[in-house]
C-alpha cells in the first residue's frame, strides 16, 4: 500500500501539467453539473414553499344564503385531500383588498357597492398538492350550484416543475460533455505515463507482478485526481454561489447551498469519473507494453 501511494505521488511529479489538466477538467465537468444542480435545488426549495401555499379558491355566486355555504364547506372539508376550508365573506374580501392592494386603496374606498364576491379558500393536505389532485378537487367544487368560478395556480406550478426538469437535463448534458473530455484527457495522461514507464512495467510483468499490482497505481491515480477535481468543483460552486448571493442575492432571499449528501455525491461522482477514465485507458494502453 505504501508502495502504491509512492507511485501515485511520483506520477504527479512526472507529468504535473497533464495531471493538473485532468484535475481541472474533472472539476469543470462537476462544476457545470454543480451549478445547474444548485439552480435545481433552489427551484425545488422554492416549489416546496409554493406547494405549501397551494390553495384553491371557489368564488361564490352573489346572494347565496350563508347556511348553504356553511353546509357546503363542511362537505368540502370532508374531502380526503382537503386539510382546511376558510370562508371569506364579501366584506372580508373588500377589507383584505384594501389592505393588500395599496395602489387601489382609493378606488375601493369610493365604491358604493362591493364588487368582490365571497369565496371559499381551500388548502390541501401535504401529498395532495400536485396538479392532478388540485384539478380533481377543483372539478368537484365546480359541481356545487352556488360556485361561480374556481381558480388555482396549476399552470405556473407545472411550468416551474418543467423548468426544474429542464435545468437538470441541461446541466446533465453539459456535464456529460465535460466528463467525456475529462476521460479523454485522463486517457492521454495515462498513455504518456505508461510509455514513460514501459520498461518498468514490462519488467514487473516478467517477474510475475499481478495485473492489479500493475494497474493499481494508475487506478489510484485516477481516483485521486477525481477526488481533487470533485473538491475543486465544490469550491468553485461555493465561490459562484457566494458571488451570486452578494450581487443579486438581495432580490432572491432564502437561497440555499448543497447539503452534505449532495456534496458527498459530487465528490463521489468525481472519484468514479477518475477511476472509470483510468480503468478504460489502462486496459487499452497496457496491452501495448511487452
Amino acid at each position: 500500500m505504501r508502495l502504491l501511494l509512492r507511485e501515485v505521488l511520483l506520477s504527479f511529479r512526472r507529468t504535473p501539467l497533464l495531471s493538473a489538466l485532468s484535475v481541472t477538467t474533472i472539476a469543470f465537468a462537476l462544476f457545470t453539473v454543480g451549478l445547474f444542480g444548485l439552480v435545481a435545488v433552489n427551484l425545488r426549495q422554492a416549489l416546496r414553499g409554493v406547494e405549501e401555499r397551494v390553495e384553491i379558491v371557489a368564488f361564490v355566486l352573489r346572494g347565496t344564503p350563508s347556511e348553504t355555504i356553511t353546509l357546503a364547506s363542511q362537505d368540502v372539508a370532508a374531502f380526503p385531500e382537503v386539510s382546511d376550508v376558510a370562508y371569506v365573506s364579501e366584506d372580508q374580501a373588500l377589507a383584505r383588498a384594501r389592505k393588500d392592494l395599496v395602489e387601489f386603496r382609493d378606488a375601493y374606498r369610493d365604491l358604493q357597492v362591493n364588487p368582490l364576491p365571497a369565496s371559499l379558500e381551500i388548502r390541501l393536505k401535504p401529498g395532495y398538492r400536485d396538479s392532478r389532485h388540485v384539478q380533481s378537487v377543483a372539478e368537484r367544487l365546480r359541481s356545487f350550484k352556488f360556485v361561480e368560478d374556481v381558480r388555482y395556480g396549476r399552470d405556473w406550478i407545472a411550468r416551474l416543475d418543467q423548468l426544474r426538469n429542464l435545468t437538470g437535463l441541461v446541466g446533465f448534458l453539459i456535464g456529460a460533455a465535460f466528463a467525456a473530455v475529462a476521460v479523454v484527457i485522463i486517457g492521454v495522461t495515462i498513455r504518456l505515463t505508461i510509455l514513460q514507464r514501459a520498461r518498468e512495467i514490462a519488467i514487473m510483468r516478467v517477474v510475475g507482478a499481478s495485473n492489479w499490482f500493475v494497474r493499481g497505481p494508475f487506478l489510484l491515480e485516477g481516483a485521486f485526481k477525481g477526488l481533487m477535481g470533485g473538491l475543486l468543483s465544490l469550491a468553485l460552486c461555493r465561490a459562484a454561489y457566494t458571488l451570486f448571493q452578494q450581487n443579486v442575492g438581495g432580490a432572491l432571499s432564502g437561497l440555499i447551498f448543497f447539503n452534505t449528501g449532495h456534496m458527498l455525491l459530487i465528490v463521489l461522482f468525481g472519484v468514479l469519473l477518475g477511476l472509470g477514465g483510468s480503468l478504460v485507458s489502462v486496459g487499452r494502453h497496457l496491452r501495448d507494453v511487452h
Binding site: R205, V206, V207, G208, A209, S210, N211, F213
Partner: peptide, 14 residues
C-alpha cells in the same frame, strides 16, 4: 487466464 499469467511467471526466471 490473464489472472494466472503472474502465477506462472513466479515459477519461472527469465
Amino acid at each position: 487466464r490473464a489472472g494466472d499469467v503472474p502465477r506462472l511467471r513466479r515459477r519461472l526466471g527469465v
